[in-house]
């Protein structure tokens, strides 16, 4: 079984996001960038499947400008075997990325495609589902457990109000939720080793995919600030305020 994992380079999740003064975008200059946390979980899951002897090869792919090679090297240090950069401008929309990933998945004849359920920048939660639709593959999104058995994946999914378990026939798409696993840290020897692992570069043109979007961002603004209110001295004062000032308790 061959696994394809996609990874995205995003603003580090610990960084406080600031909007540019001209309200065109979020300011990414001199900001720490990292692998999207859900993508890290995807890489970890693929590597664990390989360590269990269930996968023969783990290929990681990222769509973006040259800097995303850093993210691919991180994935290689975590245990992926080989990397592919689809050299394109950063910030392509989900459908374009899905078309590129679908083409790579076909070229690689991947049996399982694992993606993060969403990236923490655009928060779209679309790409995995779109890849599955384009390839007419089944999907198991928001996975908290993946069991591979005789050409099928049994996946437990986090849904509103609880958990749902699906059995999908491979090839299939799985997207990761937070509790699927806890990603390992890359060790120094593995970081060194990752530098020598193969990293191929391709382009949307080579893949025969037209990228573009009919969606334009008109503005990006900071959210309305919520200001702190008052401190109350006692439970009695709190209840009094809730009843008589905020009037949310009768």
């Amino acid at each position: 079984m061959k696994i394809l994992v996609s990874v995205k380079r995003v603003i580090d999740y610990n960084v406080k996001v600031r909007v540019k003064p001209d309200n065109t975008a979020v300011d990414l200059t001199n900001v720490k960038m990292s692998m999207n946390p859900f993508c890290e979980i995807a890489v970890e899951e693929a590597v664990r499947l390989k360590e269990k002897g269930l996968a023969s090869e783990v290929v990681v792919v990222s769509v973006g400008a040259k800097s995303c090679q850093e993210t691919l090297r991180t994935a290689l240090a975590l245990g992926a075997d080989r990397a592919i950069q689809v050299d394109a401008e950063d910030g392509l929309d989900s459908l374009s990325v899905a078309k590129l990933l679908a083409k790579v998945a076909q070229n690689e004849a991947a049996d399982l495609i694992i993606l993060g359920k969403q990236s923490i920048d655009s928060d779209n939660n679309q790409t995995g589902q779109m890849v599955a639709a384009l390839l007419d593959y089944p999907q198991a999104t928001f996975a908290s457990e993946v069991v591979i058995e005789s050409g099928e994946a049994q996946v437990t999914r986090e849904i509103d109000g609880g958990l749902q378990t699906l059995l999908v026939t491979l090839p299939a798409v799985v997207t990761t939720d937070l509790r699927l696993n806890e990603p390992r840290f890359a060790s120094l020897p593995n970081i060194m080793k990752a530098k020598r692992k193969p990293l191929d570069v391709t382009t949307p043109a080579e893949l025969g995919v037209d990228v573009g979007s009919n969606v334009t961002v008109l503005s990006v603004a900071a959210p309305a600030e919520r200001s702190g209110g008052v401190k109350v001295a006692s439970v009695a004062e709190l209840v009094d305020k809730l009843k008589n000032e905020a009037k949310v308790v009768s």
Binding site: V17, I120, V220, P223
Partner: peptide
């Protein structure tokens, strides 16, 4: 977007 730390008009 960005977990509500920015608001996009598209």
């Amino acid at each position: 977007i960005y977990a509500g730390n920015a608001i996009a008009t598209v």
